[in-house]
Design a protein around this nucleic acid. Structure first.
Lengths: 148, 148
DNA sequence: GTATATGCAAAGGGTTTGCACGGTT
DNA sequence: AACCGTGCAAACCCTTTGCATATAC
C-alpha cells in the first residue's frame, strides 16, 4: 500500500481511521471490487464494518485520489487503487470476463477527441463492451445475452 | 419511423401492440431517453401505460434490433432507435451535456482492440466521460463534481 | 472537548417479477 | 380459444441519508 495514504487523507482534512485503512487495503487486494465485494473483504478482518461505511469511505478515498471507479455495466461500479497503471476494461458480454489493457491503446482516440471536439476525457472511467477472443470463436448457445 | 417494425416484431414471434408502437415512436422522438423519460413521452398519448411495460417493451425492441441502449453513468441507461447513425456519447462530467459524435472517430481504436486483443467491440454501448470544451475553459466553482 | 466518522435502520432511486385481466392472433 | 402482453403492486438491488454513539484529533 502506498505509504503516504495517511498524508493524503490529512491534507484534505480527513481523519485516519481503521476503516479507511481496511477499505484501501481491500481495494488493492481485490484489484477490481464492487462495494459489496469490498465489504466482504474488509469484514474478513473487521466483521463489524457496515456497508454504508464502505460507500462513504470509497467516496473519501476517491476524493483524495487514492482510488477510482469504473462502470462495467448496469450493476455496481468497480473500484481500483490508483497506483496501478491506468487501464481500460474490456468486458465480454458473453462470458463476463474482464480484460484490462493499458490505456495507451486508446491514446490516438483520446487525442482525436481532444483536438477535434475539444473534449478532455478519462477513457478508463467506463468500460468497452463486446466479445472476447474465446467467445467469438465459441459455438453459439451458452451466451449470457445480458445486454449490460 | 421505419415501416417494417411490425415485420421485425412478428419475425421474432412478438405481437403488435399499441404500447410497442408508442414506445418506439417515443424513442425516436426523444433521440436519447431514459425509461422514465420514455414513459412520460408515451403517456402524452396514452396516460394509462405503466413503467413496467416500458421496461418490458424496451427489452423486446432491443431484442429485435429496433433500439439499443447505452450507459452514461450511474443513473438510468439511455435508449436510441437503431436507424440513427451509430454514435459515441461524450458526457461532460461538469455540465452534464452529452455530445454525440460519429463512431468512426474510434475506428482505429476499435481495430486495435480487435487485432491486438481479439476483442470485438461495440464502442457505442458505453459513454466516454470527461470535460467538454466549454467547461474546460470555464473558471472553477460551478462544477458538478459528481464522478458518474 | 469538539468535530468528524461510524453503525444502524429507514428511505430512496431504478428495475424486475407474480399475478389476474385484457387484447392479439 | 389459446397465449401473449399489460397494469398493478410488491419485491429487489444498489445507494444514500438521519440520527445517536463512538472515535480521532
Amino acid at each position: 500500500m502506498s505509504d503516504d495514504w495517511e498524508a493524503r487523507l490529512r491534507e484534505h482534512g480527513y481523519r485516519i481511521t481503521p476503516q479507511r485503512q481496511l477499505v484501501l487495503e481491500a481495494v488493492e487486494e481485490l484489484r477490481h471490487g464492487t462495494p459489496e465485494e469490498i465489504l466482504v473483504e474488509v469484514q474478513r478482518t473487521a466483521s463489524g464494518v457496515n456497508l454504508s461505511t464502505i460507500y462513504r469511505t470509497l467516496e473519501v478515498l476517491e476524493d483524495v485520489g487514492l482510488v477510482t471507479h469504473a462502470h462495467i455495466g448496469h450493476g455496481a461500479p468497480t473500484y481500483h487503487a490508483v497506483d496501478e497503471h491506468v487501464h481500460i476494461h474490456l468486458v465480454c458480454d458473453r462470458c463476463r470476463k474482464i480484460l484490462s489493457i493499458p490505456a495507451s491503446v486508446a491514446q490516438g482516440f483520446v487525442e482525436t477527441l481532444n483536438k477535434d471536439y475539444g473534449f478532455r476525457t478519462d477513457i478508463s472511467h467506463v468500460s468497452v463492451h463486446g466479445r472476447c477472443d474465446n467467445c467469438e470463436a465459441m459455438p453459439r448457445g451458452e451466451e449470457t445475452d445480458d445486454p449490460l
